Amino acid sequence: MKFASMIGTVCIASLALMGCSSKVTQPDEYSGFLGDYSRLKEEKSPSGAAVMRWVDPKIDLSKYTSVYIEPTQLYPKPQPTVKIPAGTLSGITSYYDQALKREASKTLPLATSPGPGTLVMRAAITAVSSKTEGLKPYEVIPIALVAAAVSTASGIRDQETTLGTEAVFIDGESHAVVAQVVRKGTGKPLSNDSQVMKPDDVKGVIDGWASDLNKAFTQLKAR
């Protein structure tokens, strides 16, 4: 269960801004990145957020002495748009990598490649889509812009940035899957439907994911 708590916080921490909150990822929002979603169950992360998660009950934590973080993927491969250009997408994955390595290295050494004693993390920023009643879904891309009414009197709507992620944890020696997690979170709202999204708009979400991961590792190590 301790490892389950650690894994559940990898893709952690949805930030609810402007009164909007993230709910658990639904099956029709799964990207296909994990392949098999049949073992996932809805649980609560240590921060109280909803997460879909599975952890091998037979996992032996004592065998892992390092962690190897694969480069974050964009899955499915997106087509950049005017509002979410290629630079924003690459900036988000790059920052995700940096944050995960920064925080994970505080607890376990970073490995340069998979191997015996290494826990491998393979993560992706994945597509989520809007099904808001009365609004047409946006193009399915790794960061969906979901229209949310913030001023019904004036008719002005902010654009909420929603970030989805899926991750699988693999034994570096046997290549066996030992855990999976699916999460989504909410970043900064854009001021209008023409504002271009930037990596800074979701850095708070990513920092939360990485920070909570390190906290879970620390708690686990202490026990």
Results as ranks from 00 to 15, higher is better:
residue 115 G to C: 13
residue 144 A to R: 12
residue 76 P to T: 00
residue 50 A to I: 11
residue 104 A to I: 03
residue 81 T to F: 02
residue 137 P to Q: 14
residue 119 L to D: 02
residue 127 A to L: 12
residue 104 A to Q: 07
residue 100 L to M: 13
residue 125 I to Y: 02
residue 69 I to M: 11
residue 161 T to Q: 10
residue 111 A to V: 13
residue 56 D to P: 08
residue 121 M to L: 01
residue 75 Y to G: 05
residue 90 S to F: 00
residue 78 P to S: 09
residue 71 P to Y: 01
residue 89 L to S: 12
residue 47 S to V: 15
residue 163 L to N: 05
residue 53 R to D: 06
residue 157 R to A: 04
residue 126 T to H: 03
residue 159 Q to N: 06
residue 63 K to H: 02
residue 66 S to V: 13
residue 56 D to L: 05
residue 77 K to F: 07
residue 160 E to V: 10
residue 72 T to Y: 02
residue 70 E to G: 11
residue 58 K to Y: 05
residue 100 L to N: 04
residue 54 W to H: 01
residue 88 T to I: 06
residue 93 T to R: 06
residue 80 P to Y: 01
residue 62 S to H: 08
residue 155 G to V: 08
residue 83 K to M: 05
residue 131 K to A: 09
residue 61 L to M: 08
residue 53 R to E: 15
residue 128 V to I: 11
residue 56 D to W: 09
residue 58 K to M: 14
residue 45 S to Y: 00
residue 61 L to R: 14
residue 138 Y to G: 14
residue 81 T to W: 02
residue 85 P to C: 00
residue 79 Q to H: 01
residue 126 T to G: 10
residue 106 K to F: 15
residue 90 S to C: 08
residue 125 I to M: 07
residue 125 I to N: 00
residue 149 A to T: 13
residue 155 G to T: 06
residue 120 V to N: 10
residue 122 R to M: 04
residue 69 I to Q: 15
residue 119 L to C: 05
residue 81 T to P: 09
residue 152 T to D: 11
residue 129 S to H: 14
residue 123 A to C: 12
residue 120 V to Q: 07
residue 143 I to Q: 04
residue 101 K to D: 01
residue 98 Q to C: 07
residue 105 S to W: 13
residue 67 V to Y: 13
residue 152 T to F: 06
residue 104 A to N: 05
residue 129 S to P: 12
residue 83 K to C: 08
residue 160 E to A: 01
residue 157 R to T: 11
residue 56 D to K: 02
residue 75 Y to Q: 01
residue 113 S to N: 12
residue 114 P to I: 07
residue 66 S to L: 03
residue 52 M to C: 13
residue 157 R to L: 10
residue 43 E to N: 07
residue 79 Q to Y: 05
residue 62 S to W: 00
residue 122 R to L: 13
residue 121 M to P: 05
residue 106 K to P: 10
residue 92 I to P: 06
residue 113 S to K: 15
residue 102 R to D: 07
residue 92 I to M: 09
residue 91 G to K: 04
residue 162 T to Q: 07
residue 72 T to Q: 08
residue 48 G to P: 00
residue 104 A to R: 03
residue 157 R to V: 14
residue 62 S to P: 05
residue 162 T to F: 03
residue 71 P to I: 01
residue 150 V to M: 14
residue 125 I to S: 12
residue 60 D to Y: 15
residue 56 D to E: 07
residue 151 S to A: 11
residue 103 E to N: 03
residue 110 L to T: 13
residue 148 A to S: 14
residue 148 A to H: 14
residue 129 S to Y: 07
residue 49 A to P: 08
residue 61 L to A: 06
